[in-house]
Amino acid sequence: MKNFAYVRPNSVEDAVSRATSDRDALFIAGGTNLVDRLKVFLDEPSQLLDVSRLAMKQIATTNEGGLKIGALVTNTALANNIDVRNNYPLLSRAILAGASQQIRNMATVGGNLMQRTRCPYYYDTAFPCNKRQPDTGCPAATGINRIHAILGSSDRCVAVNPSDMSVAMVALDATLEVQGVEGKREIPFVDFHRLPGNTPERDTNLEPGELITAVILPPVSFAQSGVYLKLRDRASYAFALVSVATALEVSGEQIKNARIALGGVAHKPWRATEAEEFLIGKAANKSNFEQAAEIALKDAQALAHNGFKIELSKRAIRRALAVSAQGGGEA
């Protein structure tokens, strides 16, 4: 337990420069996940850099016809934005499927993408954890792991990314705009989160000191067909056991374009590219959806307690695709 300072940088540049010179500093915006972690001493920062008052709260139409979403837009504002609801209904649904009104009022887009796993072993400092302290071990791999990863895990970490929003973002081919001391750069969303590999302590490909400033959504002509299906232990306020985001462009009988992304199954929001490619040119029918689901999960590996998630994911993909094929809506 150590004390930390609280600083309110006056610009993005100021924030980034402070974070670059002090590697123990952390940004805070809505704080809905960070405060949780501070309370159990998962993070022990030297200072909190409060970026919540910086000017990154706009949602603007891009020249390409997409949207540029400031990193400080709250979940509530984003889910209720008229352009998002009309053009990216999948994103709106994914956001509303997560957390509570009170949390969505505080949580920001940038923070949501930075939230860390809810693996109980990571959260409890009484356990070793490679993500918390590299090279100490992963008790989840052999412990109670029903909520853990079935795709892309390593022997060092089997945690999953908890964000609903990220699943929608990866399905929509979003791009992140980030700023470091050297200036701005863009990161395709699909490359933003990392697989655990040998460095599970790193969730993302942000460089030290970098700050997410915006998310850019390209126009997606068939986004109306978007579906977000979240399967969880209860009706409300739970992290996904499995979630699926899908969208389909169907012309006549034939699939022209497909998006399939999975949440709750891996260390990052999981884009099922191979399954998407399989569907292109095929008929939008049950048997093709079944095969796509098989392809999406073909590399899945079960731990002791999460085997059910493999079959559950397949069923969820089939169901979501079937709804997307009908033009989208609630699955």
Partner: peptide, 12 residues
Amino acid sequence: KPIHSCIYPAMQ
């Protein structure tokens, strides 16, 4: 706007 005051840092 309703928020959970338990996870809102007083400094903000």
